[in-house]
Design a protein around this nucleic acid. Structure first.
Lengths: 162, 162
DNA sequence: TATTGTTATACTCTATAACTATA
DNA sequence: TATAGTTATAGAGTATAACAATA
């Protein structure tokens, strides 16, 4: 589109970006949350979903690794795992090497639920995106990559004090 | 930048967009939440902040208008107001015309806290954005406008059933 | 009776502090 | 004693269902 030619002129200030983010991100988040939680079979909250993502991507995950990755305190992660274990989606096993550590894994049902939730939410989001032009999708996709990089959990903002 | 010339070629599918959103938005949200809540004087949660935004923008706000705008149930909105009233940030008055309705307003302290939280969070976000190029800020700003439009609370996803 | 709020109840998310078990 | 987790405690966010007050 035409505006892209003069993108540099139209670039908002850092402060303008901040304002827009503060308006846009919580709205999207609410939508995602509703979709996740409202889904009949899966019915996950966003943090639960993120926990499943982490464990499905990480072999021999420990509680503390999960906490760090998700930006949670260790007790919060532990309770989340409790809940997922109770729901039959995750398993805790004492790590063989160091029996203080826990080794997390998804049950088959956990994997299935995870995939269902992912699919359902992606479909709901994609349905919204269908109304966008290719250009707009490009902008959204690009912005998400920038933001993921800028706000990845490892980079500071969590700063567990002490 | 070069890629922008061929933006249409690189535009992700709706589904790709969805995936990226699901990765990026929760990270940003966590950052915002930490900033809001962690701020010494203000110390607001995101929903509290959003409630203050709504009331500060809306004359003679009612509980149900607030609930609808924020995508909350009416009881949830009512409890949020309780909390903000207890903290001295908001006031409830019976509406004169229709005494079932409530008329919400910010106290002077509420206005001050709101502005402090807004400023502090914007500054924290803007600090991150300073490392971006003008081009990247353009992409982020543009995406936020698109997303705000696409996921504005009034447009369906809330769908309070019955 | 229909509408606006509030109360009751129940879960999840999250933190900090105190504790337990293993190294 | 240091480290990995868990339990205890507390407060916020949220929903649905039942209730109260006003129109």
């Amino acid at each position: 589109m035409q505006q892209l030619q003069s993108a540099t002129n139209l670039a908002p200030s850092s402060d303008g970006c901040a304002r827009e983010l503060l308006a846009g991100v919580p709205s999207v988040m609410r939508f995602i949350r509703c979709q996740m939680r409202g889904h009949r079979e899966a019915g996950l909250t966003v943090p639960q979903f993120r926990a499943l993502v982490f464990v499905s991507h990480t072999d021999d995950s420990s509680i503390s690794a999960m906490a760090e990755h998700l930006g949670l305190s260790v007790p919060a992660a532990s309770r989340m795992v409790d809940l997922l274990v109770r729901r039959g989606l995750m398993e805790r096993q004492a790590s063989l090497g160091d029996r203080r550590c826990v080794s997390l894994s998804l049950t088959p049902q956990g994997k299935a639920t995870f995939r269902t939730a992912l699919r359902a939410t992606q479909v709901a989001l994609a349905r919204r995106f269908k109304t966008l032009s290719a250009q707009e999708r490009y902008v959204v996709g690009g912005a998400m990559q920038i933001l993921s990089r800028l706000f990845s959990p490892r980079d500071g903002e969590v700063e567990r004090r002490k």
